[in-house]
Design a protein around this nucleic acid. Structure first.
Length: 445
RNA sequence: CGGGACGUAGCACAGCCUGGUAGUGCGCCUGCUUCGGGAGCAGGAGGCCGGAGGUUCGAAUCCUCUCGUCCCGACCA
């Protein structure tokens, strides 16, 4: 059978739109913004609005996939709602006027008032209102990953504080407060699993609940040395593991234990920092953090005014209790880079890297190098990046480090003769000379 | 929304004060030599100097307006 790497043209660097930059564009101040531009992940098209180039789009999709899998694993249904919404819907909840100039308002050719959605509580409440009639239909938990727009006065930090951003937002509908608490805890677990899979250390911190009250609102802060706010937390958080079946999302006891593990220890950002409580913490940790998620329970704030009612078990109606749960998917790209980079560039965790590996052909045109490189490339079925450019070795190494591929398979004329490659792990800098087969096995394992 | 800057080649910048046919480095193209950590030499392409008015014989440069972008603060997933 004829099988050649030529069939996988798309990820040959010489044929790809991954424009790396040697110098930093002057608008970029923080590390992640600088590196995203330099590594060719994004390009700004307007203030706070970015185009995601091929490599950046892959990262966004990888994060979305992890978030989707973990949402579904706790029983949350994937769906997709539009970006454009009707102003009428927002008038029903009273938010059309309450929401300030951050909301992008649009008028169509018929002078109908529309808006580019900054969030979707109203829309989903409306959809549930149309489809859910009985207590038997509850609980419901749904999410989508969709572009949002908030007309920030001052966009900054690249993708971390853009106007247009990709967000996972989930909404839960329960019969009562007790049910809403279970949904809330499930989301909390899904969040911890998601962030752990991305290699991030995330800590839930109590957030303002506004007029609703109670303590059911948490911000998820990801630790990164260059984070925007100072955070204080108990070292107990470092020992928590959300992988495997540590906590069963469908066991009330496990959910309660999970919630307890996440909320009994001290954790606060500098705005909420309480010196008295902090003094009692035995094993203290401090660091910088970036908010990447926010979840809250808000009862009947939308269901009530929008007329969402279901038939109750004993007759009559009841008003479902709701919660909503956001993850800044595009912001996470920035947060990940803030957490994982060095002087040379990005250091992608394997789970979100745009490419599992880069194959660096040091001498395109050399029969031995080409053959071995194509063989390596074919082994990845086009999923790896193949640097087949006619560049000097130094430039290729610099770009490979900048783009942050977890593994680098370096193929030069020296090793090509014996089928040996140099395998470099980006995170540690460790390099070994091994056969291509061994290199592939090591990457797979 | 208050305060402060900046728009000159793909990127980073100089030139502006003191008007006179637009420059440097990197990148890009061609050739030769190089070739395992962002090479050297030679040649070349690429800019109505953000836009519109105005002053002037003449405007990147001076004046007015406008659009865009960034930084600090307040605000925020």
């Amino acid at each position: 059978m004829f099988f050649s790497a030529l069939e996988f043209r798309a990820m040959r660097l010489s044929r790809s739109l991954i424009p790396t930059l040697k110098e930093t564009p002057s608008e970029a101040q923080i590390a992640s913004h600088r590196l995203m531009l330099r590594a060719g992940l994004v390009r700004q098209t307007s203030s706070g609005i970015y185009a995601w180039l091929p490599a950046g789009w892959k990262v966004l999709q990888n994060i979305s996939r992890i978030v989707t899998e973990e949402q579904e694993a706790v029983g949350c249904q994937a769906m997709l709602m539009p970006t454009i919404q009707s102003a009428d819907l927002w008038r029903q909840s009273g938010r059309y006027d309450a929401y300030g100039p951050e909301m992008l308002r649009i008028t169509d050719r018929h002078q109908r008032e529309l808006l580019y959605g900054p969030t979707n509580e109203e829309m989903l409440t409306d959809l549930v209102r149309q489809g859910v009639k009985s207590y038997r239909d509850l609980p419901q938990m749904l999410f989508h990953i969709q572009w949002k727009f908030r007309d920030e006065v001052r966009p900054r930090f690249g993708v971390m504080r853009g106007r247009e951003f990709l967000m996972k937002d989930a909404y839960s509908f329960d019969l009562d407060y007790a049910g809403a608490v279970v949904s809330y805890r499930r989301q909390m677990l899904a969040y911890m699993r998601s962030f752990q899979r991305m290699g991030l250390k995330a800590i839930p911190m109590v957030a303002d609940t506004g007029p609703i009250g109670g303590n059911l609102s948490h911000e998820f802060i990801v630790l990164a040395p260059t984070g925007e706010s100072q955070v204080y937390f108990d070292a107990a958080f470092e020992k928590l593991d959300f992988g495997g079946d540590t906590y069963n999302a469908f066991s009330d006891a496990d959910l309660e234990r999970c919630y307890s593990d996440l909320t009994t220890h001290y954790a606060a950002t500098d705005e909420k920092h309480d010196e008295a409580a902090w003094a009692k913490v035995a094993d203290k940790r401090e660091g910088r953090g970036i908010e990447v998620g926010h979840i809250f329970y808000f009862g009947t704030k939308y269901s009530d005014p929008m007329g969402l009612r279901v038939a109750a078990q004993g007759g009559g109606d009841l008003i479902p209790h709701m919660g909503s749960y956001g993850v800044g998917v595009s912001r996470l790209v920035g947060a990940l880079i803030e957490a994982f980079h060095d002087e040379a560039g990005i250091i992608w965790p394997d789970s979100v890297a745009p490419f599992p590996a880069v194959i660096v052909n040091l001498k395109p045109g050399d029969a031995g190098c080409d053959e071995l490189s194509e063989k390596a490339y074919a082994a990845f079925k086009g999923q790896a990046l193949y640097d087949d450019r006619e560049e000097r070795a130094g430039a290729k190494f610099a770009d490979a480090d900048l783009m942050g591929h977890p593994w680098q398979i370096v193929i030069g004329p020296r090793g090509a003769k014996t089928g040996t490659v140099e395998l470099k792990r980006r995170a540690t800098g460790e390099k070994v000379e091994v056969s291509l087969e061994d290199a592939l096995a090591k990457i797979a394992g």
